[in-house]
Write a protein that binds this DNA or RNA. Sequence first.
DNA 1: TGGGTATCTGAATAGTGTTCAGATTATGGG
DNA 2: CCCATAATCTGAACACTATTCAGATACCCA
Lengths: 208, 208
Amino acid sequence: MSSSKVLKAKSAPRENYHHGDLEAALLEAAVNLVRVNGPDHLSLRAVAEQVGVSPSAVYHYFPDKDSLISALGDQLFIKMSEMQRVAVGGIRGTSARAARLRYREIGRTYFRWANSEPNLFRLMFGGFCKIEKRGTHESEEAFLMLSKCLDDLLATGVITATMRRYGELISWTAVQGASTLIIEGILPEEAFEELLDGLELAMRGGAK
Amino acid sequence: MSSSKVLKAKSAPRENYHHGDLEAALLEAAVNLVRVNGPDHLSLRAVAEQVGVSPSAVYHYFPDKDSLISALGDQLFIKMSEMQRVAVGGIRGTSARAARLRYREIGRTYFRWANSEPNLFRLMFGGFCKIEKRGTHESEEAFLMLSKCLDDLLATGVITATMRRYGELISWTAVQGASTLIIEGILPEEAFEELLDGLELAMRGGAK
DNA sequence: TGGGTATCTGAATAGTGTTCAGATTATGGG
DNA sequence: CCCATAATCTGAACACTATTCAGATACCCA
């Protein structure tokens, strides 16, 4: 199945027995394999082999294969919320225009992440990583970012107070759902910008 | 891992060599296993064993394990759109109230399906089944049902013409996303009804 | 320097998807 | 009715997987 041999870890190609910090190297190797082969079809042995270590070595850092995947999921949630912070931070200003751009950019970043790395997105939201308390925490951070963005929209008079109440929920779920439906080939890619148009319009109105 | 032995296929417990129609029996066994163990962790051998057949027999009906899963996905898409038809058909009348109830019921049925069988939902939308042309077809059928429902809402003056344009996209993606986020434990279950409230409100307004 | 400990290996077990030669049964034509 | 042919299923094999554990290795601190 594996047509081309991948090179070992870049940080420590052939160190003496003890590998600097395996845990990180394993996660890095795993994320690359998942990206290519999907969250199912991840092989523990392949991860170990790519790092240049015995399969058994993995079990000193993760009790399970599923635990490795869960840890990977946590890492991806953090990475994703960092991308959001960068994206929204890149648009400055207190004008209504800036607030609207920020709103759209939050959604776009979410979708771009999903669309550029579908297999990682599937890992995060496909029931692979058992979220106990960690993942929820990171998700709430992204949620707060969206919440703050909607506050700006309300302050600048772009959205109504009524829709402010439901804006978070609708925006988040719609962007999440669109990401899934598009990467699974059920919705066309162009649908996403259209969705953003619709969402912005919906946020404007909504009063009885 | 398997604590309790499951009984053989009900239709033909121990027929003579040739099993009436395997393909259906295999799919039925597979859907039960996926429901319990998740779309990953599905074992071809376990499917064969539950039907009471050799593992090799599967390959006369499906070239692959992934093909079996894809076929299962197709079946689930059909089943889901049938549930939608039943749900929306149960609410009759041309009043605005009936139209609103239908709108909510479409979303609820979608979510109820996801929430009651999370592993089947994950199979459908988690990148397991490679949709070529089939899955899209069934999805479009469900899409048309929602579309017709929105037409009723427009005709009875519940929603504005502007939001009619984006209503399908927003509603579908939001319900899809909420289903995912809730079954993965990221959003609380109560959020769904709140989302429906918000969606209904959003459909009402939206005009500039 | 030596002892203790964290780290990693090698081999073994049980289970997986997949292939293929051959056994078994159904089916249709004489 | 019987036989040849085709469809269906089995058994064993291969390469691969996760997981366990006794033991080898290298680091670190006393």
